[in-house]
Amino acid sequence: MTAALPSSTEVIAAHDAALAVAPAPVDADDVRGWISVNHFHNRSLWAQEDLARRTQAPDAEIVANKRAIDRHNQARNDAIERIDEFLLAALGLVDPATLASALPRSTVAPGARLNSETAGSMLDRISILGLKIAAMREQTLRADVDDAHRQACGERLQRLVQQRADLGQCFDELLADSRAGRAYFKVYRQFKMYNDPRLNPALIAESK
């Protein structure tokens, strides 16, 4: 089962391929599907964040942008948790009976180090770096700016590409170490309280 785990090279290629076509919602029933879902919501977040920073748009449009950001951010975090669940199950590092619970129980060998960042969170960061790379590349191709702007953006683009490659290597090493029993990670529930009408004090007050 571990042979089917995605590599960073595969994920980066899938991210870049997705950016070459119009965004569309994704259904998921496996880890690769949830990686695509995460990337879709990061892409949607990026677009909404740009729109939310307009200074001449009506207030109602900015409010709509902010609410869309909140929805996509929640879905993005949900996808990260699902990615971690699938990867941990494939690696045999979690008790399957507890996987969907608030506190999935790790089943790791003594002596394995706990990685502070989950594999799903790393893939989320790789997704965001892909968006930054695509956006920065567009800046290097602009005809309405001077050479200094294009050069500065070209240098930033090189750094972003290196950062994504470095993070991809760290992701591959984490999976390899986890497979070998040297490391492990957990599912960390985000518990976004502000999205829950039972936990957000402002929403509770509105309901009374």
Rank of each mutant, 00 (worst) to 15 (best):
residue 110 P to G: 06
residue 96 P to R: 11
residue 107 T to Y: 06
residue 105 R to S: 07
residue 101 S to W: 02
residue 97 A to K: 05
residue 120 G to Q: 04
residue 121 S to Q: 12
residue 103 L to G: 00
residue 103 L to E: 12
residue 111 G to Y: 07
residue 119 A to N: 01
residue 107 T to M: 12
residue 87 L to F: 01
residue 108 V to A: 11
residue 103 L to D: 13
residue 94 V to I: 15
residue 121 S to R: 11
residue 109 A to V: 12
residue 118 T to R: 04
residue 104 P to E: 07
residue 89 A to K: 04
residue 87 L to V: 13
residue 92 G to N: 09
residue 103 L to C: 01
residue 93 L to T: 10
residue 96 P to A: 09
residue 105 R to I: 14
residue 104 P to T: 07
residue 109 A to R: 15
residue 89 A to N: 04
residue 94 V to G: 03
residue 98 T to P: 02
residue 91 L to D: 10
residue 116 S to C: 00
residue 119 A to H: 03
residue 108 V to N: 02
residue 101 S to H: 11
residue 94 V to P: 09
residue 103 L to I: 08
residue 119 A to G: 14
residue 99 L to V: 14
residue 94 V to Q: 07
residue 86 F to V: 00
residue 86 F to E: 11
residue 103 L to K: 15
residue 89 A to C: 02
residue 100 A to S: 11
residue 106 S to H: 02
residue 118 T to H: 00
residue 92 G to Q: 06
residue 107 T to Q: 15
residue 116 S to D: 14
residue 92 G to R: 12
residue 92 G to M: 13
residue 86 F to H: 13
residue 121 S to K: 06
residue 107 T to H: 08
residue 102 A to H: 14
residue 104 P to R: 10
residue 118 T to L: 03
residue 106 S to F: 00
residue 120 G to W: 01
residue 93 L to C: 07
residue 118 T to V: 05
residue 115 N to P: 01
residue 119 A to W: 00
residue 114 L to R: 15
residue 90 A to I: 00
residue 118 T to W: 00
residue 120 G to Y: 05
